[in-house]
């Protein structure tokens, strides 16, 4: 896996994703209001915000599940070219190199863990049904190849020992990792993780943190992350973007965002001095003092 995917290391500089003026409405409700977002190639960008701020709507707009009424979403893969994602079908978005996980885990529960990943590998294959039915050599080769790749990805996320378990019988943390494996198996350049730490225990959170770092460093995949767990966000994200009521209210390094009065108000509704201290602590993920040192800590 490492050898194969590191091959296409960061070839082009600049932005992998450029979102400008994206507006998504459901009837009278504006879920996203002129959201701008520029994501550098190879960075980990976290999207935070209170519940209902439009984080998952943003993901759904990027991956084609929703079609925003206005705005542009430009995706620039490393091999060159520029693609408009707005209005594209979800499976086409996935084929361009943008993979996602879901907030509420959506695995194929009646299949084994390995089969879940194989489905993703096989979306990149072209073997036709007739060759499969006739058992032609190239169809058999493709099947072996998908098996090999799926094993590789499963080992990468640390599920090498759970290959033949049913996906639904895995533990919660393992299911989260299996979803990431399924997304990685499509060989994405940009990975969208929707609350990957939700419902996991502290050990699993640490493993996840390390996994995100390895995905970013070893596979050179850019990561867009929605997460409520501030400690995780502050430790893995290069930059943080804050959404509230569908609007971007702040963007910057974790340290900058924590001190931003608009962010503190969004999480609190007002900004008195003592509350600010509490929220700053919460945002730093350490429940109290010591906020603002994230830059050093992360290095």
């Amino acid at each position: 896996m490492t050898t194969e995917m590191a091959g296409r290391a960061v070839a082009v500089d600049g932005h992998v994703l450029e979102v400008s003026g994206v507006t998504l409405r459901f009837g009278g409700l504006t879920s996203l209001d002129r959201v701008d977002l520029r994501m550098r190639r190879g960075e980990v960008l976290a999207v935070i915000g209170p519940n209902g701020a439009g984080k998952t709507s943003l993901f759904n707009s990027l991956t084609g599940a929703y079609v925003p009424q206005e705005g542009r979403i430009r995706f620039r893969p490393g091999r060159g070219g520029e693609h408009e994602l707005r209005g594209r079908k979800p499976f086409r978005v996935s084929r361009l190199g943008l993979a996602r996980t879901f907030q509420n885990i959506r695995l194929f529960g009646a299949l084994t863990a390995l089969e879940n990943v194989k489905i993703a590998v096989e979306t990149r294959q072209k073997t036709d049904p007739v060759s499969i039915m006739l058992g032609l050599p190239h169809a058999r080769r493709a099947e072996r190849e998908s098996d090999r790749r799926a094993h590789e990805v499963m080992r990468f996320v640390g599920l090498g020992h759970r290959l033949n378990e049913l996906a639904s019988s895995l533990s919660y943390g393992e299911q989260r990792r299996l979803e990431i494996a399924r997304a990685l198996a499509t060989e994405p350049e940009l990975l969208l993780l929707d609350e990957p730490a939700a419902g996991t225990n502290p050990t699993e959170k640490r493993d996840l943190e390390e996994l995100i770092r390895r995905i970013n460093a070893e596979l050179s995949v850019s990561v867009l992350l929605i997460e409520h767990d501030m400690r995780l966000v502050m430790s893995v994200a290069d930059r943080v973007m804050v959404l509230n009521f569908g609007r971007k209210i702040a963007e910057g390094t974790p340290g900058e965002v924590q001190r931003d009065p608009a962010v503190i108000e969004a999480y609190l509704g007002s900004s008195s001095a003592e509350d600010t201290a509490v929220v700053t602590g919460m945002l730093s993920g350490r429940g109290g003092a010591g906020a603002g040192d994230e830059g050093e800590e992360r290095a």
């Binding site: 499976f91 009646a110 493709a142 499509t186």
Partner: peptide, 29 residues
């Protein structure tokens, strides 16, 4: 012929669609 199809990428893709069409599409099916 059909048994071969069931245990191939085609059969797995069908299962994926049957179980969760949204997730299948997001995976690129």
């Amino acid at each position: 012929l059909f048994l071969r199809l069931e245990h191939s990428r085609v059969g797995r893709a069908w299962t994926a669609i049957r179980e969760d069409e949204v997730a299948a599409a997001a995976t690129g099916v």
